[in-house]
């Protein structure tokens, strides 16, 4: 994975495949320490303890069409390369929480990438599900809550291009004002 935005897209696919109706994505940077925390919480079907032990094994997958499952192992690798870590908590029927911690100032830190396009892709292809995206840098931050936007749109699809463009522009403008 070239950058963090691809990782986010990839890990959220796991949530969607687990039948999650609501996925929370939280990206939080603390500039004094360079600590960057990515949290992805979902209300999908979760995993039992046995599966949980095996998920960072690249040769473990639930797919029948292939023999590898690289999403979480790659995220873990990229986090650990910066001196960070990656952990997954889950229980059967209780959803899943993925936490990856990076050191932003480390030479091996991957770029952030285009978060707006990642969100746009998720909303466009799964507009009936709820996404809560929060992005914070120290005290600043912004959030995109698709459940809230959907209620404002009163029946107009979130997957309309104008709505998607509106949301991506909102994300880009806010990211710009945070730097």
């Amino acid at each position: 994975m070239k950058d963090l935005s691809y990782h986010i897209l990839d890990i959220v696919q796991n949530s969607l495949n687990a039948g999650a109706q609501r996925v929370e994505i939280d990206l939080w940077e603390e500039t004094p320490t360079g600590r960057l925390t990515l949290k992805i919480n979902d209300n999908g079907r979760g995993m039992d303890a046995d599966m949980l032990k095996r998920i960072t094994d690249p040769f473990f997958t639930t797919s029948v069409k292939k023999k590898v499952g690289l999403g979480l192992p790659l995220l873990k690798q990229n986090a650990e390369l910066t001196g960070g870590s990656c952990s997954v908590e889950s229980e059967s029927g209780q959803g899943t929480r993925v936490t990856a911690i990076f050191n932003r100032n480390h030479i091996d830190m991957i770029p952030t990438g285009d978060l707006a396009i990642t969100l746009k892709t998720l909303i466009a292809s799964s507009h009936e599900r709820d996404f809560l995206f929060t992005c914070r840098r120290d005290e600043e931050g912004f959030e995109v809550n698709t459940a809230e936007i959907r209620s404002q749109l009163e029946g107009v699809s979130l997957a309309s291009r104008e709505v998607l463009d509106y949301i991506s522009t909102f994300i880009r403008d806010n990211l710009k004002s945070m730097t």
Binding site: M1, K2, Y6, L9, D10, Q13, S63, K66, G69, L70, G71, L74, T121, S125
Partner: peptide, 9 residues
């Protein structure tokens, strides 16, 4: 559009 790890990469 296929959207697994291999596809995204």
């Amino acid at each position: 559009v296929a959207m697994a790890t291999c596809c995204i990469a």
